[in-house]
Simulated assay, not measured.
Amino acid sequence: MLTRFAVAPSGFKESLSAQAAADAIAAGVRRVVPDAEVDLIPLVDGGEGTARALASATGGRLVALPATGPLGEPVGTHFALLGTGSRTGSGLGSADTAVVEMAAVAGLSLVPHGLRDPGATTTYGVGELIRAALDTGVRRILVGCGDSGTSDGGAGALQALGARLLDEDGFALPQGGRELIRLHHIDPKGLDPRLAHTELLVACNPYNVLCGERGVARVFGPQKGATPAQVEELSAGLENWAYVLTRDLPVTCDLYGGPGTGASGGLGAGLAALGARLLPRFEVLLDHLDLDARLARADLVLTAEGALDHQTPRGKVPAEVARRAKLNGRPVLALAGTLGEGAHTVPGVDAFTGILPAPMALAEALVRASELLTDATERALRMILLGAGLPRGAGV
């Protein structure tokens, strides 16, 4: 009999936080196994909820402030100052560390559907949050990348930090990724001098690269509202961005195709040009949760995300959970808002199911996501228990 469950989901973009997803799955488990021991392990990947989750895990706090949103208008946002309640191999959980969550100021959820144009959105607010974190005197800033609504290569962030991006005539470029094709020179003299004395870490998906056929504009531009023509425009701009950054700043890494350079619409590349270290996000973010030991104690591991498809093995939460669970021989069930091509090929996932019981409009599915996830968990778990109780056929 299954009695111990580890529930380790990602959030569902623009719908459920990781905590809300974990709560919904747990409710479904308890419908079937009322006395179940359910270990809730909501996971962050650098996107929405990262600053709040790390502040909570370390006994830190959130600092609320206004900053420039992705459309250039002020938005209410925050960064985290970590406490001392937990430490990881990356040095997190230290009181001298701030966490800047780019999704909290430049995320896709902050861009209304009718205004989604990744050539116009900006990461300027990310730079403002980094400056605000510097004002607190921290010695280390972790930038969480994920759920972005931008494709400006981090140009806006560099502008907010004091760099001047100039066209061929010496005029400052407007904000937005479509302007990068006109970039001719970067003047770094105005960069905040405190950056030179602050460790800058970027938690990112190493599979995301800036340029090339798998470059960030081509892979994620359409999801952010780019037309095919805009995808090519953004790709060309990011190529030029990498070229000028490498020429005008003391860059020591490959900005074109280095791991993580495409994170959050290329923010990884922009920050790497300032000396930031780009780190695989799960190595940075998950150690404080004692995840491996908690998965090992479970009879069944349940994970979830908005979409399960061919992209999942490329640094998404369910793939990481499944990989770690399999190190301890634990079975894994994945639930997803949608099932796409390649859903059946995610290594380590033993079974998977979509949460929609019937076709429905996206808007309705987003509103009902918690209910749908609970119901789907119940259905899947009843099937698992039914199968476990059936007699095995001859030769099995």
Rank of each mutant, 00 (worst) to 15 (best):
A104C: 12
A263V: 00
H184I: 07
A273E: 10
A57R: 10
A20N: 09
G125E: 00
L366V: 05
T150S: 15
V244I: 13
L286S: 11
E48A: 06
A304P: 06
A242N: 08
L372Q: 06
L180M: 13
L286C: 07
V105R: 01
L54P: 03
A307W: 01
V126L: 13
T97Q: 03
G262T: 13
L295M: 06
E199N: 13
A132W: 00
L267G: 02
G156Q: 10
G11R: 06
L238N: 15
A51M: 10
V38Q: 01
G72D: 02
P359S: 07
A322R: 13
A273V: 02
V44F: 01
P9K: 08
P118W: 09
V219E: 06
L134D: 01
E179A: 12
G342R: 03
F5N: 09
G119N: 09
D287S: 13
V7I: 15
F5Q: 11
I41A: 04
A132L: 13
P259N: 10
L183A: 06
A325N: 07
S151I: 12
F220L: 07
A57I: 08
T68N: 15
L158P: 04
A380T: 10
D135C: 00
T3C: 12
R52T: 14
G162H: 01
F12P: 08
D292V: 04
D45T: 06
L16D: 03
G146L: 08
R368Q: 12
M383S: 12
V216W: 00
V99M: 01
S94R: 07
V100T: 08
G127T: 02
A226D: 01
D375M: 15
C145M: 10
G76D: 08
L191W: 13
L385N: 08
A22C: 05
G329E: 04
D254Q: 09
V75D: 04
P331T: 02
V126K: 01
T353G: 10
N205C: 13
T123N: 04
P228H: 15
A304K: 07
D45V: 06
R182K: 14
G162L: 02
L110M: 14
V396E: 07
D152R: 08
H344A: 09
E73V: 11
L373T: 11
T84E: 06
G237N: 04
S94M: 00
E305L: 08
W241I: 14
G59V: 02
A217R: 00
I41V: 06
T303K: 02
E37P: 01
Y256S: 14
D147H: 05
Y207K: 01
N205K: 00
T312E: 07
R30W: 08
A361M: 15
R294G: 14
S17R: 13
L286G: 02
V143T: 03
A363P: 05
L210I: 14
E341S: 10
G315Q: 03
L339F: 11
H185I: 09
A296V: 12
H185K: 11
P318W: 05
A322K: 14
S94Q: 02
S148N: 12
E320R: 09
C253M: 03
G265E: 07
A273S: 07
G258F: 02
A98E: 00
L43D: 04
Y243M: 08
P280K: 05
G315T: 11
H197I: 05
L82V: 00
G265C: 03
A196C: 04
H310W: 03
L183H: 09
P331Y: 07
A276P: 11
D187F: 05
Q19S: 12
D147F: 12
N208R: 11
R31C: 12
L308R: 14
